[in-house]
Structures are given as C-alpha cells and as structure tokens.
Design a binder for these strands. Structure first.
Lengths: 342, 342
DNA sequence: TTACAAAATGACTACCGCTGTCATTGTTGG
DNA sequence: CCAACAATGACAGCGGTAGTCATTTTGTAA
C-alpha cells in the first residue's frame, strides 16, 4: 500500500541514498542509474512522504499564500494557479486568509511562516504593496514573490511578477477612442491599491497621445466596489456635460455603473459605453456583458509560484536578480461598448 | 527560536512523553502535572511540529476539503470556517478544487486522501450529494462529513451537517405572505442541487398552510446564476397575470431578476418584491439590497470540521451515530420587499 | 594495456520532533 | 505494609535527509 524509499531502492537495485539523490536532483548521478531509478519511481508511483521530508530536511516543501481581499473570485483563481504549480513541483500550499489592517499583522505573518516552516510566500495586494511585510520577510530570510502592478522590470522590483495595468488600460482606452469617444470618464478604485493609479495613468496616457486633454471632472475617486460604481456613475450622469463612455477601474465598479445607467434610463451601449477590468465572472453576468481586460489570474499565480520555487531550490542565491515576468491583461470586447453616439 | 517538545518538558520538569500526553488530551495525567505542563506550553507558546506528528503517529492531523462550486464567495467562506476549526484543533487543511464531473473523480478523491494521509474529508454539494463518493470513502475507511440540505436528522444522514433550506424558505415565504402577497413566483436553482428542491418545498408548504394554491405557472425552472434570474423574471413579467413577489432560489438569481425588473421599468419593491437566499456579498451590492436568508457558511463549515475531529479522535468508533447539527438560515429583511401593492 | 585520477555509488550513522509500547515508579486503600 | 492501579519515563521507531568515508566504476592519458 505505502511505497517508501526502500521499495524504490530495492526495485531499482540501488541504495536509498541514490534514490534520495535522484529525488533531490543532485548532480553526480549517472544517466543510466537515473533512468533506472526514475523508472522504479514511476512503476511504484512513489511519492516521498512529505512529513518525513519536512522533518528531516533543512529545506521546506511548502509555500504559503497569505491574503486579504474581498474579491473571492480573485482569491479562488489565485489559489488554483498556486495549487497547480505546487502539485507540479511536489510542494504543499498553506493558505492563510487574514486581516491586513490588524495592528500586529507583521508578527502574524512571521508566526505563520515560522510555525509552518514555509519555504516561501506568495503575496498579492494589499500584502505585496506593504513595505513592512517585505522588510520583515527579508529580516527572517524567507523568500517571497510579490504580484504587483507595474510595467517595467527593474532591480528594485526584484522577485516580482508584474501585471501591466498601465498598458492594459492604455489599450482599453484606445478601444474607446477608436469607437469615436472623446468624452471618457474614469471611475477609480481604492487609492491604496497601486493598480488603480496605474490604470488611471494608462488611461490618461492614451488620451494624451491622441491630443485629448483629460477632463478632470471626469476622473471620479472611489473604491473597488459595486456601490462605488453606482455612486460614481450617478454623479457623472448628473453632470451638465456628460461623458459618452466610462472606464471603470474593475468589473464590479463597471457593474455598478451599468446599474446606475439603467436607473437613469441611459441605454447601454447605445447612449453610453462602459468598460470594466479583470474579466471576473461578474463581467459576464451583467447585461449587457462587459467589455473588459482579461487578467489571467491563475496563470499569474502559477508563474509567481514557479519563480519562488526557483529561488527556494538549493544552489540559487536569494539575492540573484530574477527575470520579472510581465503580464498584460488583454482587451476583451463584449457588448457594453459601441460607437460614440455623437 | 524554535520551541520543541523537549523545551517544554525541561521547563515543566517532566518527560517529553508526558508533554505529548498533555498535547493529545490523554487521560491519566495528574491534575498538578497537567497544570505545570499547560503553563510551560503557554509560556513558551509551544506548537507541535505537524510534520513530526504526522510521521510518528498512526493518526493523521490533516483534513481535506474537496470542492467544485462556481460560487467563489461560498468556497471562501467555507475555507474560512474550516481553517478556523483546524487552527483551533491543531489540524491542517488541504484544499483540492477539482471537477466533479470528471470521469475518474472517485479515484481522484481516493488518491488525494491516501497521498496526503488525510484523517478525513469535508464535503459540500455537489460532492456531498454523490453516493459514489460516500461509498468509496467508506470502502477505504476514511471519515467524512457532508454538508447537505435537509431538515430532519436521521440515522441515514449519519455524519452530516444539515442546512434546513425547507424551514428557511418557509419563513421567507411567510414574510412575503405577511406583506400581503399571495401571487408569489418561485425561480428555481439547478435541479441537481437538492437545496433547490428543498427551498421550493418550503415555499409551497408555506402557501399551502395559508390555504393558497400555488400557481404552477409561477414556478420557473432554472439554475443558480444571474443569467437564469434575468430570464426567469423576464418570463414572469411577460405573463398576462403577473406575480407581485418573486422568491429567487439564491441571491444571484435574485440579482438577475432585479435587473430584469429594472429593464421592464418595474419599481422594486413598490411594484414587485424580490427575495434571495444565502446572504452573499452579492445581495448587499444590488440596489435595493436584497431581502434574503442568511446562511452562515463559515459557522457551518466550522461545525462540520468539529464533527469530523470528534470522529477522528481515537476512542471514537466511526459507526457511532453523531448528533446532526441543523442550521436554519435566518430571514434578513432589507429593502427589496414591501407591502403588496394590490 | 595499464595505471590512476575522477566520478559514481553505497554503507553507515546521526538526526528531525514526535508517538507508541512497555517497563518503572508513585500513590492509594484495605 | 503490600497489592493494585494510576502516573510517568526510557527508548525505539516513523521515513526521509545529510554527511562521512570507503569502495567500485568509469574515463582517459601514457
């Protein structure tokens, strides 16, 4: 029933030490031996006992995902990507939802890492944007990969997976411009999340490039919620001079805006175009379905985990600057956008 | 830095075996010794190394949560509750999202359980309603707790946590009846989910009790989605004889119905009352916010885990019939319901 | 071929931190 | 005061990793 390293060694006709060498990708194993052992492993479907490994090894075979994000769809997608990568590399995933604003959050993170003897951590906003967390993890010498909003790799962004909100927002805005819109409003997300700022910057850059001066009245502060979308759109539709398109900082805001427009008897997309961002299930559930930017969260998460594993693997120095994967969410045109009515 | 059982033993002036006994709630530890050890544990903030425990013990200290559910909010809530219970009892949680409809799902579940040496499993719909899964788990003698829709504990529902959809639906319907509604429509969820049937039964029972005959035209089949709510409500509002209230089988359907009503220029709640079910974040994000039934998913999950731990703990026989906790989602009145206009 | 260094492998040991078993020591009550 | 039982401790693993050498293979230059 239970296959141990001894069974594999016996079948392959080698010592357990050699099997161990194979399992840990150590060099100095001859090709022919490696093949024999690999075959035996496959034949017996041997999977090393995680508990024994963790106990014996100085290395750890689990990584953690600490999060605090109201967007359940985002979290689920991230988890999925992390789990896939973990499964592939024989790691375990520890999930730890918590409150990023709690007073002793740094200590809590440290406790989790140390108690579970984690090899590393994957951080998403807001944790990935909290310098005190990064500092603490560096202090206790635990690897981590941050998923953050950004477009240009740089040494400062060491160990980050970048999501290029700027460029994606630029493209979305171009889509609206191509439809003839020039009076475009922007509904911001939370100021604390850098993604909101990046998207706004991309939006403004696209306008500027076309020689259009962004109307400051059309930039509405808010937060990443349906509620905020309702309010923001209501405000915009009450202006004497109304926009013909709204760029909402995420799908929830867009859905709220859509709702508000309905209330005001504004036809979407005939009288008003609305775009979202993220391609959450949310965006497909509205009516009409939202034009948005597809953010491949699972893939992003997988990449982040892979990056982490690369560090964690022995022989790699933590300080080595890794290449920084950059993801550009892609424009996904659906039915909430149309040619400018004017 | 790292506190082990030895440190505790030394501080308490006992052998490590005694500390182990305390950690595992074994009897035959003298009160005075127990206090000494407990104090030492607290003082050092000792937490046993999970890997070592798993390795040494015949028992397992991890449980699994296997799921396949499109509702991310539900999953996140469940995870939260399970994690809380696990943390409290020193267990670990393995999460495993997968596809319930895959051909070899039973084998997959068995593999997960055996590879991770799980002490038990918590199952939610659809897994909790798949007899082949239950049979397989019984065959390999792994404990599991199912969270299912049901109102009356019975030996057949051994090791289940019941969510009394029937009674909750009954109460919701009563709320509508008390507002004077008699022409109430029902938007069904997926047929495969027993919760939909239970809610419908509760709805009909409430009508019957008031001597109202349910109009068969007002029971609309569908699925647990926004889309389905849109369609269902559109159909209902197109009838010559329209309902004055709609009972949607969950919040997403209700949100869809609400959307449809807006499109048809039907004022909510003045002209039409709409209720949902679940109290998902969704229900607060609509406008007006939905009257719904609050389903405390985290608590339900915690209870399920507790039940599982009780089995798993040595000294308990698997076959012992446990009490079955029953949760009745509670009516939560918000702004989507009002007195019947007629 | 031979010789010899280098590479590959194995035998063995010491853990990792905890639990299970069984022997030993305390602590009662008759 | 001693049986009888409760409370405690000594010690051997669990299934691996890691390190140390010793030994066997291999490759290669003379």
């Amino acid at each position: 029933m239970k296959v141990t390293i001894n069974d594999v060694a016996e079948l392959a006709g080698v010592s357990i030490k050699t099997v161990s060498r194979v399992m840990n990708n150590e060099p100095s194993v001859k090709k022919t031996t490696l093949d024999k052992v690999t075959a035996a492993i496959a034949q017996l479907n041997y999977q090393p006992n995680a508990a024994a490994r963790n106990l014996a090894s100085t290395r750890s075979y689990s990584i953690g995902y600490i999060y605090d994000n109201p967007n359940a769809y985002y979290i689920i997608d991230m988890q999925k990507g992390l789990l896939d990568a973990c499964r592939k590399h024989g790691y375990e995933l520890l999930i730890h939802p918590t409150n990023a604003k709690s007073a002793n959050i740094v200590q809590e993170v440290i406790d989790v890492v140390q108690h579970a003897r984690l090899a590393g951590l994957v951080l998403t906003p807001p944790f990935s944007e909290m310098p005190e967390i990064a500092e603490a993890l560096e202090r206790i010498e635990v690897d981590f990969v941050r998923i953050i909003s950004g477009s240009t790799p740089s040494p400062k962004l060491n160990n980050c997976v970048l999501v290029d909100d700027f460029t994606a927002a630029f493209k979305i805005t171009n889509h609206l411009l191509e439809l003839g819109h020039t009076e475009i409003a922007f509904l911001c997300g939370d100021e604390e999340h850098s993604s909101s700022g990046e998207r706004l910057a991309g939006f403004q850059a696209a306008l500027t490039k076309r020689g259009i001066q962004a109307n400051p009245k059309f930039v509405v502060p808010g937060s990443y919620s349906f509620e905020s979308g309702i309010k923001g759109a209501k405000h915009l539709l009450g202006l004497a001079h109304k926009p013909t398109a709204i760029f909402a900082c995420n799908d929830e805001i867009a859905a709220g805006a859509l709702f508000s427009a309905r209330l005001a008897n504004v036809a979407i997309p005939e009288q008003l175009s609305i775009v979202g961002f993220e391609n959450s299930p949310f965006s497909r559930q509205t009516w009409p379905p939202l034009t948005t930017a597809n953010q491949p969260n699972s893939t992003i998460a997988s990449q982040a985990a892979e990056l982490l594993f690369r560090h964690t693997r022995p022989g790699n120095t933590r300080s080595a600057v890794e290449q920084q994967p950059v993801f550009i969410p892609e424009l996904l045109v659906r039915e909430s956008t149309a040619v400018c009515p004017r």
